[in-house]
Design a protein around this nucleic acid. Structure first.
Length: 803
RNA sequence: GGGCAAGUGGCGGAAUGGCAUACGCACAGGACUUAAAAUCCUGGGUCCGAAAGGACGUGAGGGUUCGACUCCCUCCUUGCCCACCA
């Protein structure tokens, strides 16, 4: 029952489409607003997370349209990727057919939600007119030396049969299938994102409207840390071990050195030593372990002595060199100086293997001098001891002095270490952008020339899911001519990681059909940067960091005139059911389609916006849906209330204008839940007034509601006698003179507790107010004859009498 | 282990130094109806009290303030992010 949402929603969706109401036109005369939501992977069905994300965006888009902005609000599909291959194997259809089917299905679902997209700008990354430009950008980066191929220890997912970027390894597991990731030695393509690390860090300061925690996550991911590189000569060998430390103040306490098992010097220093075999066995054992086992908390740190010694350059002491699994090749130099008295990990390892300790920083609370008395490492500040000429200095000062001294003597150097690695982008997969590279026996690695783009993905490829890149088996693809010497050559068969595709799609939306470049420069410099970006927190590092990097690169090759792509970012909260994230594996999914069918898109939109503020998690409730539906019916019935004779009284006028003010401010600050609550209050009041002409009030209410429930608003708008779309009207303005009440309730407190309330004219003087308060009967009986110490008056609000 | 959020009625949530619990859900009562649904109206933190009214009350404890859900300190719980990061 209820209003006929099915008919109404269909009707307006057709009208919007027919009248091309959301078509965005390039127009430098008009102030632009680029609103973007993260485009979906076309899995086939939209889920509540999508609905929430896109509804939030749609409110902003429609609000900005009513504010008179030239709004760009596009949608597309992040269509390459592995699930399509898995589906292809399972359903015996090609990834392409499967993906296109999913896209069609999803586009329909999105349209049924009534979102204000300019569908003429739709893009799919799996189409060659899109991925051609992936290849083009790849070649530009290649030319600038930002793309290289090298053999490296890489993350390998045995289940997906492909490599993974560091960013795609979550807690030691594949981000997609959760299989434990192992390390493999492979030749792979990398993007030198590290060349941009300083700018990626520094420009975070320019970003003022992102959630603080996203900025922080990016900072942590870049992981800049200042320290000192120290050179340890190896005794009886012409080699040097370089270690990195942030605690150079503890150098005099270094009692051994540890190399990562993968460290290239290990094999050299054990050669011919009695320990050689034992060390090799140990290295072998460690390499068998997956990353998740190796970094597990409760696992004991293991290691072996190499038989070799290193010379501590500050005191020429010979200290033993160990190999241990707690030192990682990926971080720093893959070698550390161990200071067991002042580093808990070194402490535990030293205890386990009976290695010596030396205290060099005095703990001010605990004057232990004998390391045997230590129960744990002391990592705090204190005065230097056992540190030669630096004794007695506070360690933070000593840090600087020791670094200066080491630099002078050439035994160390200040340096900055970063956590971020270069970005591994090759995947041994079919459903992705072919890497535009050719291998020629004569000329070596040769980039495909721009004119030959796109290197098209061949259709009808057998995908087994096993045994490396499927493109390897496609002769017509692999066999090609060398772009340089025209001789026989072989194509690269790896494809690009799909994060490459999504790192610049927001630029393509500005001119999606542009033929001669990835985007039209004029269009992109008009629409960009994205004014408001909306999506999930899960992309806080991966996608957002890569997109920032692409933008900076494209600026450097003079295609863009800005270097940050997203001005504002909103990360929406997840949709929960029974306190848990909605997911297939938990079986607690609510299908948006069934809600649309039973209550309509407007009800779904209203509920999802009203249930919680956009940034926090929201709990799904079927009863909440009922409530939203009931409210919309109540709104719709406003049309049936007969027009009364009386003009709206001041009370209603004031309510109306206060509501305009509050709703406007709430939308601006993304407090949609309270914006809707304010409108509900207004509607409640419209039902209270009797025999009054509420036409104007209803008209305004409908506009205020239109960003949230656009179909219902359009229908009511039309029935109120308007023949143009409500989107062609203007957002209402409030009359400031109507915000002031003529009488207000003042709270009277005694010692901070509410004891009485009085109604007074709003322009009352302070003295008059005090007098009224003190003469209030209830207050009088509270005060009696107690002395009044103080009276605090908060204008328009309260008066506090201290006795 | 480090960092960042958050903790308010039976439930979702509101209030960011000034009336705690707006708005909605659920619940209860009433009106309409032959009846039900729908709709409309009313009620509601807890405890004491017949009532008027009072006491207590925003995870726990302390502090600042005339006044604290809000600011500060300590702790507890939950969530998220990072993590043998040298």
């Amino acid at each position: 029952m209820g209003y006929s949402f099915k008919k109404i929603e269909k009707k307006w969706q057709e009208i919007w489409e027919k009248r091309k109401i959301f078509r965005a036109r390039f127009n430098p005369q008009k102030k632009k607003y680029y609103l973007l939501e993260m485009f979906p992977y076309p899995s086939g069905r939209i889920h509540m997370g999508h609905v929430r994300n896109y509804t939030i965006g749609d409110v902003v888009a429609r609000y900005k349209i009513l504010q008179g902005y030239n709004v760009l609000h596009p949608m597309g599909f992040d269509a390459f990727g592995q699930p399509a291959e898995n589906a292809a194997i399972k359903n015996k259809i090609s990834p392409s057919t499967w993906t296109m089917r999913c896209i069609n299905w999803m586009r329909n679902e999105l349209k049924r939600m009534g979102f204000s997209y300019d569908w003429e700008r739709e893009i799919s990354t799996c189409k060659s007119d899109y991925y051609k430009w992936n290849q083009w950008i790849f070649l530009k980066m290649f030319k600038k030396g930002l793309i290289y191929r090298k053999e490296a220890v890489v993350n390998w997912c045995a289940d997906c049969q492909t490599t993974l970027a560091n960013e795609e390894v979550i807690e030691g597991r594949c981000w997609r299938c959760k299989t434990e990731v192992i390390q493999k030695d492979l030749e792979q393509w990398f993007i030198r994102i590290t060349a941009y690390k300083e700018r990626l860090l520094k420009d975070l300061e320019k970003i003022n409207y992102w959630p603080e925690r996203v900025i922080l996550m990016q900072k942590n991911w870049l992981g800049r840390s200042e320290g000192v590189e120290i050179y340890f000569k190896i005794k009886d060998l012409k080699e040097t071990i370089t270690v990195f430390t942030t605690r150079v103040d503890t150098i005099f306490g270094a009692t051994y050195v540890v190399l990562a098992p993968e460290h290239p010097l290990v094999k050299k220093i054990i050669k011919g030593k009695t320990q050689e075999k034992e060390v090799l066995n140990f290295i072998n054992k460690v390499s068998q372990k997956s990353k998740i086992v190796r970094t597990a908390k409760d696992v004991k740190k293991e290691g072996v002595f190499t038989g070799a010694f290193a010379i501590n350059p500050v005191n020429n002491e010979a200290i033993p060199i160990w190999v241990a699994d707690y030192v990682l090749m990926e971080y720093g130099t893959g070698a550390i100086m161990a200071v067991p008295a002042h580093d808990q990990r070194d402490f535990l390892f030293a205890k386990e293997h009976n290695l010596p300790m030396r205290i060099v920083i005095q703990n001010p609370d605990l004057s232990i001098q004998d390391p045997k008395e230590l129960s744990e490492a002391y990592e705090g500040d204190g005065l230097q001891i056992n540190s030669a000429e630096f004794n007695g200095l506070p360690n933070q000062q000593a840090k600087q002095k020791i670094a200066d001294w080491m630099e002078q003597k050439g035994i160390g150097r200040r340096t900055v270490n970063w956590r971020i690695r270069d970005w591994l982008i090759s995947r041994q997969r079919y459903w992705g952008t072919p890497i535009p590279i050719v291998y020629c026996d004569k000329c070596g690695v040769v980039p495909v020339s721009e004119k030959e783009l796109p290197v098209k993905l061949p259709p009808r490829v057998r995908i087994s899911g096993r045994g490396g890149s499927p493109l390897n088996h496609v002769k017509t693809f692999v066999q090609t001519k060398c772009p340089k010497c025209k001789g026989k050559a072989r194509r690269e068969t790896d494809t690009m990681a799909t994060f490459f595709d999504s790192s610049w799609y927001f630029l393509r939306f500005c001119s999606p059909k542009h033929k001669t470049a990835p985007f039209n420069k004029k269009a992109v410099n008009y629409w960009m940067p994205v004014d408001q970006y909306i999506g999930g927190i899960e992309h806080a590092v991966l996608h957002l960091l890569y997109s920032r990097f692409f933008t900076k690169f494209l600026k450097d090759i003079r295609l863009l005139n800005f270097d940050e792509p997203f001005t504002r970012l909103l990360t929406q909260g997840m949709v929960l059911k029974d306190g848990e994230v909605m997911s297939k594996s938990r079986g607690n999914i609510v299908d948006p389609d069934s809600i649309i069918k039973n209550y309509g898109a407007d009800t779904l939109r209203l509920y999802i916006l009203f249930a919680a503020p956009p940034e926090t998690e929201m709990e799904w409730s079927e009863q909440g849906i009922e409530g939203a539906f009931r409210f919309l019916n109540r709104v719709f019935r406003l049309l049936e209330i007969e027009r009364g004779k009386n003009q709206p009284d001041l009370k209603l006028q004031r309510k109306l204008h206060r509501t305009i003010k509050e709703v406007t401010e709430d939308i601006e600050s993304f407090k949609f839940n309270t914006a809707i609550a304010r409108i509900m209050e207004l509607v409640n009041q419209l039902y209270q007034v009797k025999d009054t002409d509420i036409y104007e009030a209803v008209r305004t209410t409908v506009i205020l509601l239109s960003p949230f429930v656009p179909h219902l608003a359009e229908e009511m708008w039309q029935r109120l006698g308007n023949n143009k779309s409500i989107l062609k009207t203007k957002w209402p303005k409030y009359d400031p003179s109507l915000l002031k009440e003529e009488s207000i309730t003042i709270v009277i407190q005694i010692n901070g507790k509410v004891r009485s309330r009085i109604e007074v004219p709003s322009d009352i003087t302070e003295d008059k107010l005090k007098e009224l308060a003190l003469n209030d009967l209830r207050i009088k009986s509270w005060i009696q004859d107690k002395p009044i110490k103080n009276i605090i008056v908060v204008p328009q609000k309260l008066i506090n009498i201290v006795i």
